[in-house]
Nucleic acid binder design. Structure first.
Lengths: 91, 91
DNA sequence: GCTGTATTTAGAAATTTGTCGAAATATCTA
DNA sequence: TAGATATTTCGACAAATTTCTAAATACAGC
């Protein structure tokens, strides 16, 4: 729902993770090396991002690869527009 | 900065207040009648929304009128786009 | 199956957030 | 100035969130 999306975006570390994933997919380990928090902490953040539909994960052997899910952006834009009741073309 | 904005949007009651203000400005008292929370609680929410630049307030005698500040939407759109590195035309 | 590496889950501590009732402040009107 | 109404600030508490370490799970290669 919209609540999990907004909540997911409310944490600065999670927003940094999203920005990092713009450069391309990365494994949990690679991401963990770039952030000061413990791996368990980041794993929690990944989970929040996943539940919000902001990222996808895929296991590749021992690794888990995370990537941006750009398709949620449409939903996000719709919610933002709804919050400000901006006119939109479709629907 | 962006953190206060995302944090402000993270609470469902505050998002409801924003939607309510789409219908037009309202006093703290009018808003308080439409929400189950105590006036003190809502006053706190108004403050968070104000600090994030999402609403404006203006005292009118005994009343304080709150209204949507639609100009932040540009900033918001920019931040969202930045999170997903979407191509934009200007800048 | 065992060992090593990668990741997640569990449980707990510290911090932040949402909430309230009561008190304080601001403004109007008589 | 006194009284009434509107709103905010204060102080406290419960719930949620971020964070950690330690333990558990998943997989690969021997």
């Amino acid at each position: 729902m919209s609540d999990s999306l907004f909540k997911a975006l409310a944490d600065p570390t999670r927003r940094e993770v999203l920005r990092r994933l713009q450069a391309g997919p990365a494994t949990a380990g690679e991401l963990a090396e770039e952030f000061p928090q413990a791996r368990a902490t980041l794993s929690h953040h990944f989970n929040v991002l996943k539940n919000a539909g902001l990222v996808r994960s895929e296991r590749r052997g021992q690794h888990v690869v995370y990537s941006l899910n750009t398709s949620v952006f449409e939903d996000l834009a719709r919610m933002m527009a709804d919050l400000f009741r901006l006119e939109r073309r479709s629907q």
